[in-house]
Structure formats: C-alpha cells, structure tokens
C-alpha cells in the first residue's frame, strides 16, 4: 500500500481513495488511511490518539 492511496478492491476502497484525493491536510489523510478492518471507527480513533501523542512529544 502506498502512502497516498488504499488498494482498489472494493467499493469501500474506491470511495476512500476518492475522498483521500479531496483532502490536503496530512492529518486528515492519515485518519482516512487508517479506515480499515471490521471496526474502522476504532481504527481511526486509535490513529487520532497516535497523532495527538506525537504532537505532544514532538520536539520543535
């Protein structure tokens, strides 16, 4: 899987790729790329947690 896209095997993936193409914020892209599995909300929430923790520990 590339950084920008998600594989194109199902309608879900087709929609997610189209949505990704409309986003410019890297944080938003990361969240949509995390949309996977049987519980995509949980997967995105977990990614959001990671993003926030990274922001907390990120050094200027």
């Amino acid at each position: 899987m590339s950084e920008e896209t998600i594989s194109q095997d199902s309608p879900r993936e087709k929609y997610l790729n189209e949505l990704l193409a409309e986003l410019s914020d890297p944080v938003h892209k990361r969240l949509i790329q995390a949309y996977r599995g049987d519980n995509p909300v949980q997967s995105m929430e977990s990614e959001l947690g990671k993003i926030l923790t990274e922001a907390l520990h990120h050094e200027d």
Partner: peptide, 13 residues
C-alpha cells in the same frame, strides 16, 4: 450503503 457508512464513521470520529 458503504458510502453512507463511511460518512457516519467519519462523523463519529
């Protein structure tokens, strides 16, 4: 429906 599901999940997030 898959499309609507994606929307609901993103809103939920």
């Amino acid at each position: 429906e898959e499309l609507v599901q994606i929307q609901q999940n993103v809103i939920s997030l």
